[in-house]
Amino acid sequence: MSRPDIDCVTEAEGCVSDDSLHRAAAGESAAFTALVRKHQRSVYSLALRMLADRHRAEDLAQDVFLQLHRSVASIESDAHLSFWLRKVTINRAIDRLRREPKYEEVSLDESLLLVSAAPAEDPLLQRQLRELVGRLPPAPRAVVLLRYQEDLDPTEIARTLSMSINTVKSHLKRSLAILREQVRDTTAVDSGGANPSKLDPSSPNVDQ
């Protein structure tokens, strides 16, 4: 189900051979660096869209990889590694949002610069969607990110977030309904103003 990762030729470009995990577990620095290169897109993007702040996201993503370095011996396979990284990233992000629920920081707009190379059908709509996803409460936000950024199915999301599959489906359904409604409203009014009552009041301000 997962999207294919970056095409690469050498380990230096982020390509991870089958035994890279084992070599990283054995303490080989180059193999661990290759693991970082391979997974940093996913980890950083999850952190960025959970926290809506580039600096905090980078800090959190680095912490995740440092934790991985300590635990890499317990990782059994590449699939296990992806699962472990997503789980740790989301849990750490939710912990930070609980500890620091109201920080005023730069918006997800900064990330727009970073994705400008990506093919876009409607850049304005995509921007609105990122902002609206950033306003969802942490748990539904994590569900939406794992579904649409990481391409996980509800069963995998439930396993990653330690939720029941019904809770995942419920979060997805409600989040999509909110997003659809907000997109329709903003398109109709053409003002970009979302109804904050349906969104998380403690979430980071993404309008700046």
């Binding site: 660096t33 940093q40 897109r41 993007s45 950024q149």
Partner: peptide, 21 residues
């Protein structure tokens, strides 16, 4: 589809890798 496009993963770049190292 719009969500998939909007939430496409972002690469933090080689600088990030070096910071981790």
């Amino acid at each position: 589809d719009q969500l998939r496009n909007a939430l496409r993963p972002v690469d933090p770049g080689e600088e990030f890798t070096q910071h981790v190292v």
